[in-house]
Design a protein around this nucleic acid. Structure first.
Length: 298
DNA sequence: ATGCCTGAAGGGTTCAGA
């Protein structure tokens, strides 16, 4: 005993979830908070202006000891951070990021438990080569600049609207010519990760079939035909504390789900120095791919 | 060839989503 005793850092659970409307998702969101007990939650597609968010769910969150950082707008988009491990230095949006044409509510940052947390809803892109697509790439470049200028202990969570590799879609052939999988989008994501951010779910499940989004249509979830586009990207000091990381598929089941599932990471105290090689989880049996048409946009 | 499903706004339908 004596001087130099390490201060115990409590386990911290951080989650990200594109809820596709807080208003419509309340019957799923509140029970999920009670069951999973996350300490920090990044939300996307809240679809609420900030005052409407507070009116709708402020009391319910306060009762659960969450404070909130909000960056929303009516109808579309909207992001938030819920925290019960502190929440300070809130920044709405990404400085210098383009709009379409006006800035959209797609990012909010706050410091929670000594970690810089960024909740992002990356633009969809719609069609490769379109104005929306160029907007997506430019917005990602601005996000990268903001993260690069930020503190070392950082975690970027949210709906990236990019599947990092072909292993992150149920069938690469089904996505030929579509957004979310094109080389420029993947390059933009890779440049963000090149700041030193680790994809904590893929790191923990390197050979698994892991998706976070399934189209509502055509029984895609039932057949597990999805994409992994919701990511938790952690800088090395944070990634080294990850004890577990997974997609909460239970939240995609049942009545009235979002089309996205939450992604959750549990952080533990960092041991001194290197934690050594991480033992990969056992591989699942290879799932035979079926040829399936994507639901088509109009 | 088209809709499939869901949410929002507005108005009896259309747009957006990925």
């Amino acid at each position: 005993m004596g001087v130099g005793v390490a201060v115990a850092v409590e386990l911290m659970r951080i989650a990200t979830w594109n809820v596709n409307s807080v208003k419509q998702r309340l019957p799923r969101l509140l029970p999920w908070l009670d069951e999973r007990q996350p300490d920090v939650v990044c939300l996307q597609e809240t679809k609420l202006a900030d005052d409407a968010f507070v009116d709708l769910v402020g009391d319910e969150l306060a009762n659960r000891r969450y404070t909130v950082a909000l960056h929303g707008e009516a109808t579309w988009n909207g992001v938030a951070i819920l925290s019960r491990v502190g929440l300070s230095d809130v920044v709405a949006g990404v400085p210098g990021a383009p709009g379409f044409p006006h800035p959209e509510a797609r990012a909010v940052s706050a410091t929670c438990g000594e970690i810089r947390v960024v909740s992002v809803y990356v633009p969809n892109g719609r069609t490769p080569g379109s104005e929306h697509y160029r907007y997506k790439l430019a917005w990602l470049a601005s996000l990268r600049e903001m993260v690069a200028a930020g503190p070392q202990a950082t975690i970027v969570c949210g709906d990236m609207n990019i599947a990092p590799t072909d292993d992150d879609v149920f069938d690469p052939d089904a996505y030929v010519g579509q957004t979310h999988v094109t080389p420029p989008e993947r390059a933009a994501l890779a440049e963000l990760q090149a700041l030193g951010l680790h994809d904590v779910v893929r790191d923990r499940w390197p050979n698994e079939r892991v998706f976070s989004y399934w189209d509502y249509r055509a029984g895609m979830f039932h057949q597990d035909l999805g994409m992994r586009i919701d990511l938790i990207l952690a800088s090395t000091p944070v990634a080294s504390r990850v004890r577990a990381a997974w997609v909460d598929r239970q939240a995609r089941k049942g009545r009235g789900p979002s089309d996205h599932a939450p992604v959750i990471a549990d952080l533990d105290e960092a041991p001194d120095g290197d934690i050594g090689p991480v033992v990969p989880p056992p591989s699942a049996p290879v799932t035979k791919r079926r040829s399936v048409k994507l639901p088509q946009s109009r």
